[in-house]
Amino acid sequence: MELRWLTSFVAVAEDLHFGRAAERLHLAPSALSAQIRALESHLGVRLVDRGRRSRPRLTGAGELFLVEAGLTLAQVARAQAVGRRAGRGEVGRAEIAYVASAAFSGVLTQVLSACADDGKDLTVGVRELETPAQLEALASGTIDVGFLRWRPTYPPDLTAICLLAEEVVLALPEGHRLARLQAVPASELGAETFVVPHFDEQHDFRDHIRRLAELGGFSPRLAPPVKDFIAALTLVSGGLGVALPPASLRCVHLPGVVYRPLADARLITRLVGVHRRQDTSPAVRRLIRLLSAAADGKAAA
């Protein structure tokens, strides 16, 4: 069965006049009549009574078939509209993953809000994943965009957009001797044990500890690595060490934890959005454009 047969039949049923229906469809009356006959032949039933001296009228079968034909054409129109919107990235699904500390920066919330306010039917799935797991999930296609802390290199098929650069602060137990200071010099940290998330074994925050150690003239002591910065701050609250979280984590008000700036070191950490270079999904490309807009907004701020 051809869709054009249905379109022709519905036009005839609405007008009950082959000439007017043909004109509306930009067909010759003979061509329209041929399509109706082809439809009736296909179904094995007469749908339209063609009176020589009276207007055409629908048979009982034709009246029942008209309802279904109308529903079918409406669904086809909807499918075409969805297909076109999907091609423009206006409808679809994208999967996001993020490290825990990214949730407190405000950038993830900004991108999700932009997805919600975009006026499009873009469905976004969100989950928390550590950095190595995110990189694996991006490679396998399980996720489309990852929010993670900066790394010096990425797999060749991935690219990163810097979303936020923020200072690192010192997290201390509330009763710590250094908590009374307004800002803490690196030289005062030689006796401290630093707690670091285990996903960051080589880069970023461990680099910050090494820089502080160089400035302060000491060899850093590291506690056993923990899952993420929330776990690190929990250990800090228990008096088991100090940590160097991004400044955005100051919004995490764990009992027994205070935050102080560093007096003689300006350490910067970057939050990046990582995605596949050659991703062809229109929905994902739209999400990437929202990422870029978020990055531009932070730069302007």
Results as ranks from 00 to 15, higher is better:
residue 135 L to E: 13
residue 1 M to V: 08
residue 245 P to M: 03
residue 20 R to F: 13
residue 283 A to M: 06
residue 132 P to N: 04
residue 260 R to H: 11
residue 213 A to L: 06
residue 165 A to D: 10
residue 198 H to V: 11
residue 231 A to T: 11
residue 114 A to Y: 06
residue 49 D to E: 13
residue 180 R to E: 14
residue 283 A to H: 03
residue 250 R to P: 01
residue 278 Q to Y: 14
residue 123 T to D: 12
residue 163 L to N: 04
residue 176 H to K: 10
residue 151 R to P: 09
residue 36 I to R: 14
residue 179 A to G: 07
residue 75 Q to D: 10
residue 75 Q to K: 13
residue 94 A to S: 06
residue 216 G to C: 04
residue 44 G to I: 01
residue 67 V to I: 15
residue 259 Y to K: 08
residue 107 V to D: 05
residue 37 R to M: 09
residue 105 S to H: 06
residue 100 A to S: 11
residue 218 F to K: 10
residue 92 G to Y: 00
residue 259 Y to A: 14
residue 78 R to E: 03
residue 46 R to G: 12
residue 160 A to T: 04
residue 176 H to N: 06
residue 73 L to W: 05
residue 95 E to W: 08
residue 268 I to W: 05
residue 298 K to F: 10
residue 229 F to R: 00
residue 288 I to S: 03
residue 34 A to D: 12
residue 220 P to R: 04
residue 166 E to Y: 00
residue 64 L to M: 15
residue 11 A to D: 03
residue 68 E to C: 05
residue 115 C to Q: 14
residue 2 E to L: 15
residue 274 V to C: 04
residue 124 V to S: 06
residue 161 I to A: 06
residue 64 L to Y: 12
residue 168 V to R: 00
residue 236 V to D: 01
residue 147 F to D: 12
residue 104 F to G: 09
residue 37 R to N: 10
residue 186 A to Q: 06
residue 49 D to A: 12
residue 177 R to L: 14
residue 261 P to R: 01
residue 119 G to R: 06
residue 228 D to H: 03
residue 166 E to S: 02
residue 136 E to P: 09
residue 260 R to D: 08
residue 235 L to A: 08
residue 181 L to E: 05
residue 103 A to E: 10
residue 114 A to H: 10
residue 54 S to R: 15
residue 10 V to H: 06
residue 111 V to W: 04
residue 87 G to S: 05
residue 129 L to V: 05
residue 281 S to P: 05
residue 115 C to L: 15
residue 231 A to H: 07
residue 224 P to F: 03
residue 287 L to R: 03
residue 207 D to F: 03
residue 220 P to T: 04
residue 72 T to W: 13
residue 300 A to N: 11
residue 162 C to M: 12
residue 138 L to M: 12
residue 213 A to H: 07
residue 223 A to E: 08
residue 31 A to I: 13
residue 7 T to P: 10
residue 187 S to A: 15
residue 198 H to G: 14
residue 15 D to F: 07
residue 196 V to H: 00
residue 90 E to H: 03
residue 301 A to W: 13
residue 98 Y to M: 08
residue 156 P to G: 04
residue 240 L to N: 10
residue 205 F to I: 00
residue 217 G to T: 10
residue 47 L to G: 02
residue 127 R to N: 02
residue 60 G to A: 11
residue 162 C to Y: 01
residue 128 E to D: 13
residue 297 G to V: 12
residue 236 V to L: 03
residue 149 R to F: 09
residue 189 L to E: 00
residue 143 I to D: 01
residue 188 E to C: 07
residue 276 R to Q: 10
residue 98 Y to W: 09
residue 92 G to A: 09
residue 2 E to V: 13
residue 73 L to T: 03
residue 169 V to Q: 00
residue 233 L to A: 03
residue 97 A to P: 08
residue 229 F to V: 00
residue 148 L to K: 12
residue 107 V to Q: 07
residue 237 S to W: 01
residue 272 V to K: 01
residue 197 P to F: 00
residue 181 L to Y: 09
residue 176 H to M: 06
residue 20 R to L: 15
residue 260 R to F: 02
residue 78 R to C: 01
residue 243 A to M: 00
residue 190 G to W: 09
residue 237 S to Y: 02
residue 265 A to S: 04
residue 301 A to V: 14
residue 284 V to D: 01
residue 276 R to S: 06
residue 213 A to P: 08
residue 143 I to N: 02
residue 185 P to M: 10
residue 190 G to T: 08
residue 237 S to H: 04
residue 94 A to Y: 02
residue 271 L to K: 03
residue 86 A to L: 06
residue 296 D to P: 01
